[in-house]
């Protein structure tokens, strides 16, 4: 059990390290026009996102995992 937990933590840390590494070179500021488009923003409509979670979490035994926030680093 402890080793499984350790493996998951190690995997999560590796993902963070990988992601932050990508962040140096992946997309230049001048290439972010489409990433800044409203359709590319995760949960760009907070009311829709919360109402959606509202409906689904009242019908299903699960919740969460919707993410939110983020952003393209365009400004």
């Amino acid at each position: 059990m402890a080793s499984r937990f350790s493996s998951r933590v190690a995997l999560a840390l590796a993902l963070v390290a990988l992601a932050s590494g990508c962040g140096r070179w992946a997309v230049r500021a001048s290439e972010k026009e489409h990433l800044a488009d409203p359709v590319m923003v995760f949960d760009g409509d907070p009311h829709e996102a919360s109402a959606d979670e509202h409906v689904l979490s009242n019908r299903e035994g699960s919740a969460g995992g919707r993410g939110g926030g983020g952003g393209c680093g365009c400004n």
């Binding site: 963070v16 995992g65 939110g68 926030g69």
Partner: peptide, 24 residues
Amino acid sequence: DTAQGTITQNLSPTMNLQVGLWGQ
């Protein structure tokens, strides 16, 4: 008690990814 962590990554000029971990 509710906690959440997300990583949002630009993968290319036309693609982004978000990974989230949520606990309650």
